[in-house]
Design a protein around this nucleic acid. Structure first.
Length: 136
DNA sequence: CACCTGACTCTAT
DNA sequence: AATAGAGCCAGGT
């Protein structure tokens, strides 16, 4: 596939590039930060379309969300191995404790200078006004 | 234009 | 605990 008119892809890649080694973000987290109607499934598509760019985008740090845990949703890409090599721990059921390894979002400076929004604080307390979030 | 598919995620069985 | 269905978005056919 060769998307010409990917309205979210580039921004999705920019956000993922900010996730530091040893941390993970969920598809939904990335979508929220990109904003502008971007959704988790769109992030999944963007990653599926990465191609050669996978060498410069830390795609392995994006995982699926399962309640308060995270899980690898890819197969055959050794995503879990890559993450464990970076220090991310998986429990006996192959789940990651998001409370411990979840990326807390881009730095405020970076978000502002690149036109992105921060990740909402924690469950319940949004870090930005509803008007800026498009969460269903 | 209609329909299918998915590196999604939440709710309800 | 495992499965199914439903929303959603964007690309491919």
């Amino acid at each position: 596939m060769q998307p010409q008119d990917e309205r979210h892809y580039e921004r999705i890649y920019q956000v993922i590039s900010q996730v530091p080694k040893g941390k993970v973000a969920t598809y939904g987290d990335v979508a929220t930060i990109v904003g502008d109607g971007c959704e988790a499934a769109t992030v999944g598509q963007a990653l599926g379309a990465l191609g050669p760019r996978s060498v410069q985008v830390p795609w392995q740090r994006v995982i699926g969300r399962r309640g308060d845990k995270g899980r690898v949703t890819t197969s055959g890409l050794h995503q879990r191995d890559k993450l464990e090599a970076e220090g991310v721990e998986f429990d006996d059921r192959g789940l990651v404790d998001l409370g411990k390894f979840r990326w807390t979002g881009p730095s405020e400076d970076w978000a502002r200078s690149h036109g992105f929004q921060m990740l909402p604080k924690e469950e319940g307390a949004p870090a930005v006004p509803d008007s800026q979030l498009r969460l269903f």
